[in-house]
Amino acid sequence: DKATDPGVPEENWEFIQQFCDRVNADTEGPSLALRLLAHKIQSPQEVEALHALTVLETCVNNCGERFHHAMAKFRFLNELIKVLSPKYYGTWSSEQVKSRVTAVVFSWTVWFPQEVKIQDAYQMLKKQGIVKE
């Protein structure tokens, strides 16, 4: 909650670092963190969702292979897809949140070309016209 506090417009790097440390300290850390972050990224409060995306990207950079393995599952990718889809939360989330989610998934297709599920998820979004460019 402290790492994604919507009452604070600036990123709080100290709390973000503490979040990453806890992810790394626990065997179940990556899967638990991703469930929490998915929930926050789906928040209708734009600042909370944007903070959660920053935390997610920081974890991708700092939490290593176990985190990458968990985030490359459809279980988590589906939660990001829901933010973009008008059938799910697409009408609640702001354009800025949606464009950052799209950019994050696209960047993973580049940085993790071996993760087939990320490629599948992104191709599906393009095929359905949800990602246009």
């Binding site: 065997t27 599952k73 459809f74 279980r75 990718l77 589906n78 829901k82 599906m124």
Partner: peptide, 15 residues
């Protein structure tokens, strides 16, 4: 502590 590693997954959501 014994930890159960769940390696299962869901299907890709159809939007």
């Amino acid at each position: 502590t014994v930890s159960f590693h769940d390696d299962s997954d869901e299907d890709l959501l159809n939007v």
